[in-house]
């Protein structure tokens, strides 16, 4: 199963490489990873999506918790949560295809953020599944470039990840 693990990490040199190193060292797989500072400049927030059965995920979270730089950690997929990913995608859009792409973008509530006479750059925000669905929907169009941020997320309701 796919899991989204969110981590509050000391904003120290080498901290990120310890997290990433752990995954390769123990043969765990990273599907996506996002990291950025939080409102507290001593902390970064990191979100990792990974796949594995319950035992593997348990091991992953235990080993992450063991890292001295990891302050707190939550497996968002254990409860109700909101996940978002942002994708910028550059496609060929000329002639009749321009309308078709525009229509598909509207359906996905995507925005065209840059235009030339033959190219659209589109921004799509949503769950990774929605982004995948959008890619599938425009599969007839020539895709020039895709840039995805990876997943970021928070728990629903009162639950917060903080120190």
């Amino acid at each position: 199963m796919r899991h989204i693990i969110s981590i509050l990490l000391e904003n120290e040199p080498g901290a990120l490489s310890r997290v990433v190193g752990l995954f390769s060292q123990r043969n765990y797989n990273i599907e996506s990873l996002t990291v950025a500072p939080t409102e507290d400049h001593t902390l970064s927030r990191l979100t990792i999506t990974t796949v594995g059965d319950d035992r593997k995920i348990e091991q992953i979270t235990k080993h992450l918790n063991k890292l001295v730089d990891v302050v707190k950690l939550v497996d968002l997929t254990e409860g109700a949560h909101i996940e978002r990913e942002l994708m910028l995608i550059k496609v060929k859009a000329a002639g009749a295809q321009r309308d078709e792409v525009k229509r598909t973008a509207d359906i996905f509530r995507a925005q065209i953020v840059d235009v030339t006479s033959t190219i659209y750059s589109i921004q799509v925000v949503g769950t990774s599944a929605k982004l995948d669905a959008f890619l599938a929907a425009i599969s007839g169009i020539t895709i020039l470039e895709v840039a995805r941020t990876g997943v970021s997320g928070v728990s629903r309701g009162e639950k917060v990840l903080s120190v």
Partner: peptide, 11 residues
């Protein structure tokens, strides 16, 4: 003392 050592190989 190490939680990661428990159920690592044998549950």
């Amino acid at each position: 003392i190490d939680p990661a050592s428990i159920s690592k190989t044998v549950a």
